[in-house]
């Protein structure tokens, strides 16, 4: 008895409107990531004489930062470092998840035990805290932080793939594929993975959203990106001192992060719900 009252259908319409808006937002952000120069040429050009101009100044719709750089251009240019890392994190974590989760789920036994304990252990580690400490002590740049995040995010994918594979393994159609005498690789690739791609894809999206937050948190603390680079987290911490002169500097970066993260999350969740 699937329920869809007028009330609930209204909710569904709202959700799909949100889904479309989120997709639109992501398309715009992606365009900024791919072609920053087209939308914001010379974003890093400084003009210290005109630092801290408030929003709606002539030629600077969002004003300028302390170094006199145009905030709108900075915002567009900053999208790249905001999203490149999270994409890499999500992709890397998915690759590890597919490999280790697939092995653990399909073969079980000792391999499963070792991989599961590894996942449990990494899962119990506070990832942002460790990333802060690691970035701080090792002093590595952006990609070192990305690597740490990949390692700390992967247990979620490992568990996801493992349980999806285990669930598939018990399905009658997998048992009958085994009775046909098909090999493990054919069953994994042709019969199991097509049925688990969806959950993995959804998790990929959610990983991007979480990665966005983690990476920008690091750059907010001044870790991972070099001073002066265009980056949303960086822009917030720099703009904080400018909160009286040009609040748009920090607030626009904050809004950009929140909106992008919400949009990615929304798309991921909607895909998940539609597919259930």
């Amino acid at each position: 008895m699937s329920a869809s009252t007028p009330r609930l259908r209204q909710g569904a319409t709202l959700a799909s409107a949100g889904f479309c808006i989120s997709l639109g937002i992501l398309a715009v952000v992606l365009a900024f990531v791919l072609f920053p120069e087209a939308f914001a040429p010379n974003a890093l050009a400084q003009d210290v004489a005109h630092g801290g101009l408030p929003a709606l100044s002539s030629g600077h719709p969002l004003g300028t930062d302390a170094l006199g750089r145009d905030v709108l251009k900075l915002l567009i240019a900053g999208s790249r470092s905001a999203l490149a890392g999270p994409l890499a994190i999500a992709a890397g974590s998915m690759a590890i998840g597919l490999l280790l989760g697939g092995i653990a789920g399909w073969y079980g036994g000792a391999a499963d035990w070792i991989i599961s304990r590894y996942a449990d252990l990494t899962l119990s580690m506070p990832s942002l805290l460790l990333a802060i400490v690691a970035a701080g002590i090792i002093g590595g740049g952006y990609w070192v932080s990305v690597l740490i995040m990949v390692i700390l995010y992967s247990p979620f994918d490992i568990r996801l793939v493992r349980s999806a594979v285990m669930q598939q393994k018990g399905m009658a159609y997998i048992e009958s594929a085994r009775l046909l005498g098909l090999g493990a690789r054919r069953i994994l690739v042709r019969h199991i993975f097509p049925n688990v791609t969806l959950v993995i894809f959804v998790n990929f999206f959610l990983n991007i959203a979480y990665g966005l937050v983690s990476m920008s948190s690091l750059s907010y603390l001044g870790l991972g990106v070099s001073p002066g680079a265009a980056d949303w987290g960086r822009q917030i911490s720099d703009g904080r001192a400018l909160l009286f002169d040009n609040p748009a500097c920090a607030l626009s970066a904050g809004a950009a992060i929140i909106i992008t993260a919400v949009a990615v999350n929304m798309v991921g969740r909607q895909i998940m719900e539609r597919s259930l």
């Binding site: 399905m171 009658a172 159609y173 997998i174 048992e175 009958s176 594929a177 009775l179 046909l180 098909l182 019969h191 097509p194 049925n195």
Partner: peptide, 22 residues
Amino acid sequence: IVFQDPYSSLNPAHTVRFAIEE
């Protein structure tokens, strides 16, 4: 063997043709 549950006896990812030809 033919199993009980018609919802799990066929792989949802594949067509009837694929299932029988395989």
